[in-house]
Design a protein around this nucleic acid. Structure first.
Length: 302
DNA sequence: GTCCAGGACTCGC
DNA sequence: GCGAGTCATGGA
């Protein structure tokens, strides 16, 4: 094995190709680059940019760290990948309940080994969630790309530009008008800058939120912030704070997936959305993520 | 032109 | 506490 390489061993409930399929869902994704079954991206490790790539390996995931690849950089990348792909999760209980559940069965069989792909950076998660409110995912990707290319740090490697997500400190110093040229709606710009200031001032941290205890306490804290409603709070719980049970019940994509899988001629009402999830308690974030994935794969099939 | 997208806020009651 | 109107952009 080369100097900058390491292998992260994974369980049978992890499929590199399934997660790669999810990561390749948008050509406008700007936080990593895909080619030949490999994912390359830059992250911040203790203030320094580190470029790395991951690919499938018979024993798990092969990680290659670019450049000097100090022990600190390798450890930081390993931590990141572990969090990004939720590698510490034992999915057996979820798959057992999925096999028993008529709504989830096809999704868990078809996408076995998929993880709730995370967004380890708290600020990035908030921005992505706010941008995604009420607009199509494809347009949200366009807005995110403009935002990242304008305010993020760029790293050139092998003719490809990689970006670090803009820091909360950088965005905290902006005025909403600075985002107008990117076609980010004025109100969303206010939300984003407000969150950036909370994070930059140390008033909003991942550790601080997790210390609140359960999902309900965290949701209560988050929805007190301007621009954060129940959907966004649960989205952040799912993608960044790693709750396996977060449930963005108002999600339109979830509604469409339930309509499809349950064979309904209309979208479910909110009480129905809650009722569907009753048997999924403990795993509602995983159920939601699999249903999103299933809806996308069905759409691609047509 | 109308409707819908991975919602949230404000206002009136 | 709850329903209706508003916000902004882009694709079908």
């Amino acid at each position: 094995m080369e100097n900058g390489q390491l292998i992260i061993r994974t369980s049978n409930d992890f499929s590199f190709s399934e997660n790669l399929q999810y990561l390749s869902r948008s050509a406008d994704e700007c936080m990593f680059h895909l080619r030949d079954g490999r994912v390359t991206r830059a992250i911040d490790v203790e203030g320094e940019p580190v470029l790395f790539r991951i690919e499938g390996h018979p024993d798990g995931i092969l990680v290659t760290v670019d450049g000097e690849a100090t022990e600190g950089a390798k450890a930081g990348v390993e931590r990141f990948v572990h969090d990004w792909l939720d590698l510490g999760r034992n999915l057996e209980p979820f798959y057992e309940l999925g096999e028993r559940d008529p709504i989830l069965r096809d999704a868990v069989r078809l996408h076995h080994g998929l993880r709730v792909v995370g967004i380890p950076d708290l600020f990035e998660t908030f921005v992505w969630a706010i941008l995604g409110q009420q607009i199509t995912v494809s347009f949200a990707y366009v807005l995110k790309r403009r935002f990242v290319e304008t305010f993020g740090r760029a790293i050139e490697a092998d003719g490809v530009t990689h970006y670090l997500f803009p820091s909360a400190e950088r965005v905290a110093g902006l005025e909403p008008e600075a985002l107008r040229g990117l076609k980010i709606p004025a109100r969303k710009s206010e939300y984003i800058i407000g969150i950036a200031r909370l994070i930059a001032d140390g008033d909003l941290t991942r550790e601080g939120l997790l210390a609140l205890g359960g999902d309900r306490a965290i949701e209560h804290r988050l929805t007190a912030i301007r621009g954060i409603g129940p959907w966004t709070a649960n989205y952040v719980l799912m993608r960044c704070l790693r709750s396996p049970d977060a449930y963005p019940a108002a999600d339109v994509g979830l509604h469409n997936a339930l309509k499809l899988v349950a064979g309904m001629d209309r979208k479910p009402t909110l009480p129905e959305v809650e009722a569907f999830a009753e048997p999924w308690k403990g795993w509602r974030a995983y159920a939601t993520f699999y249903l999103w994935r299933y809806l996308n794969s069905e759409a691609e099939r047509v």
